[in-house]
Structures are given as C-alpha cells and as structure tokens.
Amino acid sequence: MDKDRAEEIATAEGLTKLDEKQLAQLTQSVASARELAGKLPKDLHWSEEIALVFRLPTPEDTGR
C-alpha cells in the first residue's frame, strides 16, 4: 500500500530517476509522514493561524 503511494508520489513529483532502493526510501517516507501527521493536534481552531515569517515592508521600512 505504502509502496503504491510512493510510486504515485514519485510520478506526480517527477522523481522518475529513483532506483529501487531510493523508491524504498520514499515508501518509508510515506509511513513516516503518516505517523507524524498523527501527532498533529486534533483541536486546532480555524482562528489559530500559521506562524508567519513572510512580512511586507512597512512604510517605515521603505521611508515612504
């Protein structure tokens, strides 16, 4: 199952040069991603926004 998903991802992502061993790594990644997703909080409210890094320059920054 994870192997099928890994093959789907490889095709969608253009990772067509992965050999068997590298595809096995991607299969492992599928299982690991599922495990990590299970650790995300289940009670995030829509008002809880992402932590931002991106910020537009303010008029103070640009001196305008």
Partner: peptide
C-alpha cells in the same frame, strides 16, 4: 525525501 510524502494541509 520524507517531505515528498507530507500533505500540504499537514
């Protein structure tokens, strides 16, 4: 490669 398998929503 692990990042290829994580969904955007996650």
């Amino acid at each position: 490669l692990d990042g290829a398998a994580v969904s955007a929503a996650d």
